[in-house]
Design a protein around this nucleic acid. Structure first.
Lengths: 158, 158
DNA sequence: TCATCCCCGTTATGTAATAACATAATTCAA
DNA sequence: TTGAATTATGTTATTACATAACGGGGATGA
């Protein structure tokens, strides 16, 4: 995590342990099965890497880590990422060009994030989107999905 | 505008005329003067091109159009863009890698957009950000700026 | 008028993402 | 169970987006 705009440590975090990851991968497989989609090896591997990482991870970091012996080809990872995103298993953080596992499977295709510019962590928050849907209604605009990205500093980095 | 996911025309738009652009450029110069910043030639040119364009425009389109005779160098334009963004004169649309002139100088560094996936137009909407600021407060997160991007279809593209 | 700061021009490179086409695995109906 | 259709992957190459690094020049202020 090389976001150091400050000098304190950034270890106020806790990634999933391997059991946690296994559990999430199993859920994901079940979800795909239920949806009639295939959870293939590269997709699973990509999701595993996203889950194992603490916070948003870049596509090229995934590419580098994909094989124990060497890097994957970009399309392998990008295709997996877009599949996972469509399945609601991960989110793309536009302002970071990075990806993060989805926490909250309720609000499909819409998400809000608090992004710490200091430690690089992200927190996914559920929002009621009433004010934006209201505005959209006034404009006669059909919203398909909303991305909200709030940048600032998290509690530990204040 | 090459967004055609549909076949109807996308001319439901109206760019600023040259008087409108002149007026906006003059305002921008005044704003810089007041802030003790320099509105230099490349910055002004960049802003002019953003204003002249209808909707979000890509950095490399600006680069191509910068000089009548040929393209600018990328850093020229990127530097100008980041200056203009800091001054609140333009917004970056993260999910499009594109830039649009700011309409509403009230809510500094935060903006919400309705982005039509069909015609590529954007509408800047003012929102009350109470629900996200509330969530941030609960997380003890200090928000510096918020970007909200709602994708869908505008009235004319329905 | 000298030092400093800010900005610009330029070259080069780094980073992110996709186009295009070939091959392989899966599914499903005949 | 075979073969056609579909879906996914492998591979090469390219395109798109963005910044690092350095030198020079003009404005600003002691």
């Amino acid at each position: 995590m090389t976001h150091a705009a400050c000098d304190h440590d950034h270890h106020h975090d806790h990634a999933l342990d391997s059991n946690g990851i296994e559990a999430r991968l199993a859920e994901a497989q079940a979800l795909c099965l239920a949806a009639g989609e295939r959870m293939t090896a590269p997709r699973l591997r990509t999701l595993e890497l996203v889950l194992a990482h603490n916070g948003p991870i870049k596509a090229y970091d995934l590419i580098d880590r994909f094989h124990p012996e060497g890097a994957a080809k970009p399309p392998t990872v990008y295709r997996s990422l877009s599949f996972l995103e469509q399945m609601g298993l991960i989110h793309r953080i536009e302002s970071l060009n990075a990806f993060v596992a989805c926490h909250d499977h309720t609000e499909s295709h819409s998400a809000a994030f608090l992004l710490c510019e200091c430690c690089g962590k992200s927190e996914e928050v559920a929002l009621n989107l009433s004010s934006i849907t209201q505005k959209a209604l006034e404009s006669d605009f059909k919203v398909e999905r909303v991305t909200i990205e709030a940048k600032g500093r998290c509690k530990a980095c204040r």
